[in-house]
């Protein structure tokens, strides 16, 4: 595993206006993630895990403190630079898949590559590889409404992974799946993490997900409550 930090967070505070006052979602977070980690932010609703994921994903900026993701300081990025960071280096997996319903599996997975201006032949190869990783080569021409929930989430994983991002952010990726599908999805992500050295960072409170994590960061009221590292 590469020892260089992919994410460095120092004294990070995030406050949201609430009525006449403010609500502190994150309160002095210090965290570092290395390339290839399979980690999760764990905590109940309101603990700040999604807010932290948003900041790491350059979808939001801290109120104070610093968040550096792949060498880029999030609070200093313009909207265009944030979009560039997401486009080139980050993959997202959502709880409800968010696939484009009118496009085929192939086209959904191909979309991030279109934003990166890959040639058609490059795209074809990369999409085929990504669908092979998630075991969906047979469903290449299917459209999301024709797929099961598990298959949809596999497409979402392929879409997040197709550009070989350094970091994949997954917000409750198994929330809409049954147990069997959840395990299949998590195994797939774990395999990709090991084979491609992609860093996976989850926001979850699902025990199934937690059982797969090698690093568990427990958040409570906007602070890191405790951390656990398992070597499996």
């Amino acid at each position: 595993m590469d020892n260089s930090p992919i994410i460095e967070i120092e004294k990070l505070v995030k406050k949201f206006p609430m009525g006449r006052g403010e609500f502190t979602a994150l309160n002095g977070i210090d965290l570092r993630f290395k390339q290839g980690e399979f980690a999760g932010l764990i905590g109940p609703s309101g603990s700040g895990k999604t807010t932290l994921l948003n900041i790491i994903g350059s979808l939001d900026v801290p109120s104070s403190g610093t968040a550096v993701v792949m060498g880029r300081t999030i609070e200093n990025l313009t909207a265009r630079e944030s979009a560039k960071l997401r486009k080139e280096s980050l993959g997202f997996i959502f709880q409800s898949y968010n696939l484009l319903a009118v496009h085929t599996v192939y086209e959904n997975v191909e979309f991030p590559l279109l934003l990166l201006n890959y040639t058609a032949s490059e795209r074809k190869k990369m999409v085929s590889d990504a669908l092979e990783w998630v075991g969906l080569t047979e469903k290449i021409k299917s459209k999301p409404p024709q797929l099961s929930g598990g298959e949809c989430q596999r497409v979402a994983i392929a879409r997040a992974m197709v550009k070989r991002p350094s970091l994949v952010l997954a917000d409750e990726p198994t929330a809409n799946l049954d147990t069997a599908n959840s395990h299949n999805i998590l195994k797939t992500m774990e395999t990709l993490n090991r084979e491609l050295k992609t860093t996976f960072l989850f926001a979850t409170h699902d025990d199934k997900v937690i059982s797969y994590l090698r690093r568990k960061i427990f958040l409570l009221d906007g602070k890191v409550d405790k951390e656990e590292i398992t070597s499996n």
């Binding site: 909207a79 265009r80 979009a83 486009k87 080139e88 968010n98 979309f111 934003l115 879409r159």
Partner: peptide, 14 residues
């Protein structure tokens, strides 16, 4: 709106 959200999250500029 949902489609645009996904596209923005994937790095497409507004």
């Amino acid at each position: 709106y949902g489609e645009f959200g996904v596209r923005l999250a994937m790095g497409e500029e507004k």
